[in-house]
Design a protein around this nucleic acid. Sequence first.
DNA 1: CCTATGCTCAAACGATCGTTTGATTTTCCT
DNA 2: AGGAAAATCAAACGATCGTTTGAGCATAGG
Lengths: 204, 204
Amino acid sequence: MNHPASTKDRILAAAESLFAQRGFEGASLRQLTAAAGVNLAAVNYHFGSKERLVEEVFRRRLDALNQRRLAALARVAGRDDTTLEQVLDAFIRPALELSHDDHGALFMRVLARAFAEHDDRLRQFLSENYGHVIRQFTAEFAHLLPHLSKAELYWRIDLVTGALTHAMSGFGMIQRKGDVSESAHREQTVAHLVRFAAAGLSAP
Amino acid sequence: MNHPASTKDRILAAAESLFAQRGFEGASLRQLTAAAGVNLAAVNYHFGSKERLVEEVFRRRLDALNQRRLAALARVAGRDDTTLEQVLDAFIRPALELSHDDHGALFMRVLARAFAEHDDRLRQFLSENYGHVIRQFTAEFAHLLPHLSKAELYWRIDLVTGALTHAMSGFGMIQRKGDVSESAHREQTVAHLVRFAAAGLSAP
DNA sequence: CCTATGCTCAAACGATCGTTTGATTTTCCT
DNA sequence: AGGAAAATCAAACGATCGTTTGAGCATAGG
């Protein structure tokens, strides 16, 4: 590992921070390269274009995050006694663990931006590379909520995933409770978000 | 009432649509004025600047929306038997009624963007002009949820309002169920969102 | 009818954007 | 050590951004 962080890594770190702060269009390559301490042309040299840099920022975190989500899902899904709460836990816990790291919390803000912006190219990239994750969770939700129509289920999943992403994007700033340990607080938060998401998905 | 819509109104309508589609920075004044069928300079003539146009887009909808929210809140708040669900209904129902209009649904998308972007100027404008609404609802929530710390309550309110805005921003596209009347469907949706929001606010 | 006022228009302003260029420096292999 | 390959650099490219200008058009009041 490079003790002086490589140019690529410094660009990726600065991009994550600036994208979270000013958005993908709002953060210019000149601000970005200045913050990273590299030359302006370095972005196009190492990544080809700004758009591909955006994709790499997502890839760096989402590969590991979604792998852990699928692993957690495999542990609970497909059984006769699988509960909605278990599936939601598999979706929420890996993301919340990521967002407890400072840089991870920044990335969740970036993810929340991607959700809000309706950039067709970005949605296509996310769908192509990580669509199978949502699809596997959706299949499990459909099995657990058979009384919902397809359209209604899709809308509720979009509602819940958007809400969860928003929730964890504002998470880096209110940690450290002091009276309870960090792991206990995290466990409380997971339980709270699972109940929240379950209420968004399940019908009365 | 101008039968041929005035230049100002045509700019506001086109701005609402383009801001929802491409964001505040992403929508240029040239795209905007072309869509509105007016001259490029008309924006700066009638509104002074692009930033003030953004503010007017919000003002046009939020004045009425928040007035109805406060009126609904006044009808249920401050009593001994006030429930969390009643307060949430007062917050949710006016917004959902707005989002059932096509243009209203577009505006909810604009509102969701304002939530995701951390533009300081925009947040200050919204806080200055509509902060008292959130503050009044927050006071009622604090009264109904006395066991929550201030920081925890604020975080949960931010979580829930963000989730609700996101929910109603994607609402224009899945209406018309066919088998149930529109008002019945709306009533179902209100009930669903109220339960969802209540789960996000209340502790176990 | 004439003029003052409100409005629209094409054109241009300077600034900033993402990207490219070509030269220069650094790195690594034989 | 020497030379190919990789990386960094300052500078410039054309495009597009929000904004301003000044002339031209409309219309209502005296």
